[in-house]
Design a protein around this nucleic acid. Sequence first.
DNA 1: GCTTGACTTAGCGCTTATGTTATTTAACTT
DNA 2: AAGTTAAATAACATAAGCGCTAAGTCAAGC
Lengths: 98, 98
Amino acid sequence: MTQLDQIFQALADPIRRAILARLALGSATVGELAAPFAVSMPAVSRHLKVLENAALIENQRVGKHRRCSLKVPALKEAYEHLGHYAGFWAASPGPEKV
Amino acid sequence: MTQLDQIFQALADPIRRAILARLALGSATVGELAAPFAVSMPAVSRHLKVLENAALIENQRVGKHRRCSLKVPALKEAYEHLGHYAGFWAASPGPEKV
DNA sequence: GCTTGACTTAGCGCTTATGTTATTTAACTT
DNA sequence: AAGTTAAATAACATAAGCGCTAAGTCAAGC
């Protein structure tokens, strides 16, 4: 599984995307990240591991908490991959009124 | 599974990304798309279905061939989703020389 | 109308993903 | 030292993903 595979795979889950969106506002602990979701903490812990393996986040212990934060380069890589297709929608306005 | 889930899920496979890259050059039949890969035609057929369900491609029968082509809006949607994070790498140069 | 050619669908096996609860680890608290 | 809190890991169940071969569909050509 390549890096890009892992990144897109990680992005393919709504909880994980929500976690990234939350982290875009600033770092957070695992508990804080888990709170909004109706899944158990272990489930969130594993989502975080998926994100970490994709290099989308990193974390660091702070006392008994673990503080997670966004890791930008992987996001950028995915963005730039899709950017190869940018010519298609740059050329034409797109389906905004379709 | 949301649309965005399906799009990113579809993008998480190297064969499917290669198929999209190929289609970026122009439409192609299923056989043409399958040729470069060391997997069976049914496998490619299912990859195409995944891409189709994600609205990343569409296809149309032409005689006994099926001609596939890129569907831009879904691609754009994924791109724009990641674009929300663009501020992060726009602000700082990024790890190009790290 | 039967065959050929281009796919798709079905059925199977294997691996990966996701969730749960229970247990463990690690670090602060008293 | 014992307890509490934060999070990870283990063990398990279920579902989904991806591959294959074999069989079905459907338009073209003879």
